[in-house]
Computed example of a mutant assay.
Amino acid sequence: MTKFLLAVHVLAAIVAVGPVTVAASMFPPIARKALAAPDDSQAVATTGLLHRICRVYAAVGVVVPVFGFATASNMGVLGDTWLIVSIALTALAAVVLAALVLPRQSAILDAIPEGRGNRAATVRLAMFTGIFNLLWATVTILMIVRPGSTTGA
């Protein structure tokens, strides 16, 4: 059962978190282009698509920690420090996405047709997106290295 739960956890992370990290990273430069030329329908449509990808896959991403907890419980590692740190970083990444990235994407999308957006907003968004991505990279490394693991990794 542990192998099944771990496989679902890893697949969910790849399928759900991967698209969010890529789409969120692509959003600021495309948004800058759309803000500079609000009549560029392709850039405007692309920013909307990237935001939708981020929202949808963020919601789907909820299954990642659900299966992560189930896997950790089956493995008997719920109290391990590396896992507790990973859980805290995952929660922080979720907060960054929900409170800092997605709302700023929405605000920029709203500003495009009105021509009132600015480059500084996209720069701040890029910074928060980078923090989100760095948190996920750190969690991924902790999941692979697992300090104190007996697997020899």
Rank of each mutant, 00 (worst) to 15 (best):
M1Y: 14
K3L: 13
F4L: 15
L6D: 03
V8A: 15
V8L: 15
V8N: 08
V8D: 13
L11C: 11
A12P: 01
A12V: 06
V15Y: 06
A16K: 02
G18F: 08
P19M: 05
V22P: 01
A23T: 02
A23C: 04
A24Q: 04
A24L: 03
S25T: 11
M26N: 10
M26K: 08
F27C: 01
F27N: 01
P28S: 03
I30K: 12
L35D: 11
D40N: 14
S41I: 09
T46C: 04
G48E: 03
L50K: 03
H51M: 06
H51E: 06
R52G: 00
V56N: 01
V56I: 14
Y57P: 00
A58N: 12
G61V: 11
G61C: 09
V64R: 03
P65D: 15
V66G: 04
F67N: 10
G68L: 12
F69I: 13
F69C: 03
A70L: 15
T71S: 15
S73F: 15
S73D: 13
N74A: 14
M75F: 12
G76S: 07
V77N: 11
W82N: 09
V85P: 06
S86Q: 07
S86W: 06
S86R: 10
A91N: 02
L92E: 08
A93T: 09
A93Y: 11
A94R: 05
L97W: 07
A98W: 09
A98Q: 12
A99G: 11
A99T: 14
L100R: 14
L100E: 09
L100P: 00
L102W: 01
R104I: 01
S106K: 14
L109E: 15
D110I: 01
A111D: 15
E114F: 03
G115F: 05
A121P: 04
T122H: 04
V123E: 12
R124F: 02
R124A: 03
L125H: 07
L125T: 07
L125F: 02
A126H: 05
M127I: 15
T129D: 01
T129F: 01
I131G: 00
F132A: 01
L134V: 13
L135Q: 07
L135T: 10
A137V: 14
T140V: 14
I141T: 12
L142M: 08
P147I: 07
P147S: 04
S149Q: 04
T150F: 08
T150R: 10
T151A: 14
T151W: 13
G152E: 10
G152F: 12
